[in-house]
Design a binder for these strands. Structure first.
Lengths: 187, 187
DNA sequence: CTTTAAACTAAACGATTGTTTAGTTATTAA
DNA sequence: TTAATAACTAAACAATCGTTTAGTTTAAAG
């Protein structure tokens, strides 16, 4: 018995996500969010509580977006080769729309590393733990590797992936390709 | 014929540098700088012009601090082994005082990657160019490597160093050691 | 001493931050 | 058609941002 919402929450969150992705949390203001999401502050607050709420929803939306990449990764049957392809897939979404924004999770991981935002940290850790588990799984398909080797290589690849995401913001495609290729020569 | 400064500019910049190192540029306020530097806003402005000026001086101070590491790196005579040692030396300063702050230059590089601050970008690029030159120099001591291999490996190591600095903020010593060891396995 | 000017304190500046609120519009159930 | 209420607009909120400024203290030069 009242007015209908004139926007779709998923749609405006997708726009907010892009803004956070490009600028980070702190460098994105409510004013910018208003403009980019196309709705005014009242609507933002009534839908998502506060700026932090918009950010959390944006992170969830991001995870949904990269789910297909993770899914493909998980379903692969080529062991290490799957990891490599996953690396290439991961950076490809960073280059959409001519932007070089890196990975929103990694960017957030870095920006929030010195804060005490437990909610965000929890989300980050679950993301990273999941990735590590998948990498270990893939490495284990090579039966010749002992447990210690698998652990070492998993640590190595996880850091390489983290560094790759950071580098995707500032380095050229050529440099990144060189990096990925040589990274997997060490396994 | 007037009053003397009651602080030493180099000393207060060292303190400012630590604050920027820990929190980044945007997340460090003048209020925090006042407190940490132990002098008030007027003094900060009269000595360094503005917040940006404090930051630029902090970057210079940081470069001075890491100069000894670069010097050792340059003077080494063991080729690739020197690069590896340089990697270890670089992360060691990040763990001083129990803090995990990464590398100020790399942090800045990431934070400013989407801005148009030419002065900062210039400083970053000169730092990176210098590092790349040194790495290439070290790689060339192995005469069996052709030019293309050297270029590829230099790109690889530069990104690895960048990623390492980013990871140093959030990863454990064990993970980082695994990463460095495997990074140099096949060069 | 007195003069002079740089270094200090502390308060205020306008702009912007995230957030709230009072008042208006629009839609639906009665 | 009317009453009810959610969704909207737009202005204001207190707090903080980087920066400036008016007034006081201090110390060296004349």
């Amino acid at each position: 018995m009242a007015r209908k919402k004139q926007y779709i929450e998923e749609e405006v969150i997708a726009k907010a996500m892009n803004l956070f992705w490009r600028n980070g949390y702190e460098n994105t203001s409510m004013q910018m969010l208003e403009k980019e999401m196309g709705i005014n502050k009242f609507s933002i607050y009534s839908s998502f509580g506060n700026k932090h709420g918009v950010f959390v929803e944006s992170l969830k939306a991001y995870k949904k977006n990269v789910h297909s990449i993770f899914d493909k990764f998980q379903k692969g049957t080529n062991g290490i080769e799957d990891i490599k392809e996953f690396f290439y897939d991961s950076i490809s979404i960073s280059y959409q729309e001519g932007n070089e924004k890196g990975c929103l999770v990694t960017n957030t991981y870095n920006e929030f590393s010195e804060t005490e935002d437990e909610l965000i940290k929890e989300q980050m850790n679950s993301f990273m733990d999941n990735l590590k588990k998948l990498i270990i799984e893939k490495l284990k398909t090579d039966k010749t590797k002992d447990t210690e080797t698998v652990t070492k290589q998993a640590n190595y690849l996880l850091l390489a992936k983290h560094g790759l995401a950071a580098a995707a913001r500032v380095n050229s495609t050529k440099e990144i390709e060189d990096y990925i290729e040589l990274t997997f020569k060490n396994l």
